[in-house]
């Protein structure tokens, strides 16, 4: 299984994502600089967390228009799994691969702590390692994680089972406690919390290791 991590200026979870992917696949991912125009042969693309372009204009806005994103959008449309974590989620909404937007946290605070998520839907490649309704603990670290979309969009996400993870105790004011959603084709996931930060007991948990292992296994099927 070949994986890629896109590196934007001021990405800061790209190496954590690389370690998580190598742990899950046995092979290091290709690290692809944002100025590239082509992706290497890849079965899974990760847009990592961070503060790409210093969050200028809007979080993820500049990164979503960087050269490599044309190739990422094309890959996503052809069915290759793409996940965006934290800033990666913001980039996916700005690129139009996921609906809605991530606004400033309702409480204005930067939120940095471990949160508990409920697995809402395990019928996708993204959460097949988990039972529906079970909880997992992933850290969050963001200022703009307040998921927003109009009512029709939120209702559609609910009715189509596209809310994959929900916060048990909402840390940022997200609509309908949304922590992670997928696109209608089921191959693009945006997730505010950081599974790549809990891939070993040494880091305080292994729920993230289960997430990546399950994703890699499901994507390889």
């Amino acid at each position: 299984m070949k994986t890629s991590v896109i590196v934007f200026p001021a990405s800061n979870c790209d190496r954590d994502a690389a370690v998580a992917l190598e742990q899950a696949t046995g092979k290091p991912p290709a690290m692809v600089w944002h100025a590239e125009t082509d992706l290497p042969d890849t079965d899974l693309v990760v847009l990592p967390g961070g503060f790409s372009y210093g969050d200028y204009l809007r979080s993820g806005a500049m990164a979503a228009r960087s050269p490599i994103m044309r190739a990422v959008v094309e890959k996503a449309k052809s069915g290759t799994p793409v996940i965006g974590i934290c800033n990666g989620f913001q980039i996916l909404t700005e690129a139009g691969l996921l609906p809605g937007a991530l606004l400033r946290n309702a409480g204005l605070n930067f939120v940095c702590r471990t949160v508990t998520l409920k697995v809402e839907n395990n019928q996708s490649i993204f959460a097949s390692a988990f039972e529906k309704g079970q909880t997992v603990d992933f850290p969050v670290a963001h200022h703009d994680g307040n998921y927003f979309a109009d009512k029709e969009t939120l209702d559609r996400l609910e009715s189509e089972g596209r809310i994959v993870f929900r916060y048990v105790d909402n840390p940022n004011g997200s609509a309908r406690d949304i922590a992670g959603i997928m696109n209608d084709a089921g191959n693009v996931l945006g997730l505010m919390p950081h599974p790549e930060r809990v891939i070993s007991p040494l880091l305080g948990g292994v729920d993230g290791a289960l997430f990546f292992k399950g994703l890699v296994e499901a994507a390889a099927r």
């Binding site: 204009l57 809007r58 228009r65 700005e94 809605g100 937007a101 927003f148 979309a149 109009d150």
Partner: peptide
Amino acid sequence: RKLLANPVM
């Protein structure tokens, strides 16, 4: 439309 504003919000 392409960059300066996000029509969602």
